[in-house]
């Protein structure tokens, strides 16, 4: 089983795509770094003929992601995709679009959404997931600025301060029993039921399964308190503990 990041194109304007892609990835660079990307051109319909596939592939690589394959591509464009180093995706895409990711009122934008696990036997470069939940990862030393700790397929329990500029990422729940001053992610591979628990919330950013709140959006009343964060209607909700 593997999960993919899907880049769903609604425009052939490379500049627009690049701007939005960079804006998106800059929010959580470590999540998107070297991520395999599936490009879905379905929304483009006939416009797809105007899409410069090799330039697009170069653009995605420039954003430090790996374009793996194109989905819903007309047969006539297949050689161009292969030429650009991408495969042709014929499997199903059960997109679970995160709420708010695609504002209906603004057409013609590319959007990124997480796709739930799909059978991996048809694809090659997929993120390596170990089969079982191996129990939580426990960190007992301070997580300093610039450090990234990712608990793959696991909960992450941090018993020391997470400082500004540090990132702590869990595919399951994230617990920080000390001041949380950095960036925290729970459900990093798309698990909407994941939660974040902080003993002292001073975070720069908190994200669950793709939805996030930035420092500016955290109500002052929550700052410095013990708080849990969970998803409700696709948005992060903060609640004092």
């Amino acid at each position: 089983m593997a999960s993919f990041t899907v880049l769903r194109l609604k425009s052939t304007d490379l500049e627009l795509i690049e701007n939005q892609l960079r804006a998106k990835t800059s929010q959580l660079p470590s999540l998107f770094l070297d991520a395999p990307v599936l490009i879905d051109v379905a929304p483009l319909a006939d416009e797809v003929a105007a899409l410069p596939l090799s330039d697009l592939a170069r653009l995605v690589r420039a954003c430090q992601m790996i374009p793996v394959a194109v989905a819903h591509l007309p047969d006539g464009l297949r050689p161009a995709a292969v030429e650009a180093g991408m495969g042709i995706w014929r499997g199903p895409i059960q997109a679970r679009v995160r709420a708010g990711a695609e504002p209906a009122s603004i057409p013609s934008i590319p959007s990124i959404s997480s796709v739930p696990p799909i059978p991996s036997h048809e694809t090659t470069p997929a993120p390596q997931l170990s089969a079982a939940h191996g129990g939580p990862v426990v960190v007992t030393t301070p997580v300093r600025g610039g450090q990234v700790i990712h608990a793959h397929n696991n909960d992450l329990v941090v018993l020391a301060p997470v400082n500004p500029g540090a990132q702590v990422i869990a595919d399951g729940h994230l617990h920080v029993y000390a001041p949380m001053r950095g960036r925290g992610v729970a459900g990093a591979k798309g698990l909407p039921g994941a939660r974040i628990f902080c003993q002292k919330l001073e975070a720069e950013l908190l994200a669950i399964s793709g939805a996030y709140v930035m420092a500016d959006e955290i109500p002052p009343a929550m700052r410095g308190r013990a708080v849990q964060v969970y998803l409700e209607n696709g948005e992060c909700r903060l609640q004092p503990l």
């Binding site: 997580v143 600025g145 500004p164």
Partner: peptide, 13 residues
């Protein structure tokens, strides 16, 4: 202070 924090991370790694 932030830079020192970063350096402390490198010292530990």
């Amino acid at each position: 202070v932030r830079d020192s924090d970063r350096v402390l991370g490198l010292l530990a790694a």
